[in-house]
């Protein structure tokens, strides 16, 4: 939702901000309710777009929340609940895209960018150091011999 923006907008569907979860929906068992809330936050409200069903008070979002709670109460595990909703609406309904070949680029992209960035940094520093007067190159054997002989001569 929304943020900021303010700007904004004319919304094509009024993003009515309001109470989303309603006390009548809440499951009696706090552990199940917590699971329901967590699942609801991963499912996209289809009529509002970009809002999870947990945040939305659209009617369809409310009915989806009810469905999620009923399935949880009936003993479905999280995976099955999500699978059911996905079987109806497709991957679009997931706010956390599944890891599939189609989303490899999405999920591994940030990591790849970081690695490329670090690689670029490493290359940059290696080239940088090559001619950095601040970091003298190690002495060659010749130089070392000369240095030693100079030191042996002592201060003049």
């Amino acid at each position: 939702m929304k943020l900021r923006l303010l700007l904004i907008l004319w919304t094509w569907l009024a993003a009515a901000p309001a109470l989303a979860v309603d006390p009548r929906e809440v499951l009696a068992d706090p552990a199940l309710e917590a699971r329901a809330r967590a699942l609801s936050q991963e499912l996209r409200c289809l009529v509002c777009q970009n809002q999870s069903i947990d945040d939305s008070d659209a009617d369809l979002a409310r009915d989806l929340r009810k469905l999620v709670r009923e399935r949880i109460a009936a003993g479905d595990d999280d995976r099955r609940v999500i699978d059911y909703v996905v079987s109806r609406y497709g991957d679009f309904v997931l706010l956390r895209p599944r890891l599939t070949p189609a989303t490899y680029l999405l999920w591994f992209g940030p990591l790849a960018i970081v690695l490329l960035g670090l690689l670029a940094l490493a290359v940059f520093y290696r080239r940088n150091r090559a001619d950095d007067p601040a970091v003298p190159a190690p002495l060659s054997p010749d130089e070392r011999r000369r240095l030693e002989s100079l030191l042996k001569d002592g201060p003049r």
């Binding site: 009915d63 989806l64 469905l67 909703v85 109806r88 497709g90």
Partner: peptide, 13 residues
């Protein structure tokens, strides 16, 4: 009334 059929069909509007 509770969107059961509608969700079964994956309807959004």
């Amino acid at each position: 009334p509770e969107s059961r059929g509608v969700i079964a069909f994956g309807v959004t509007g």
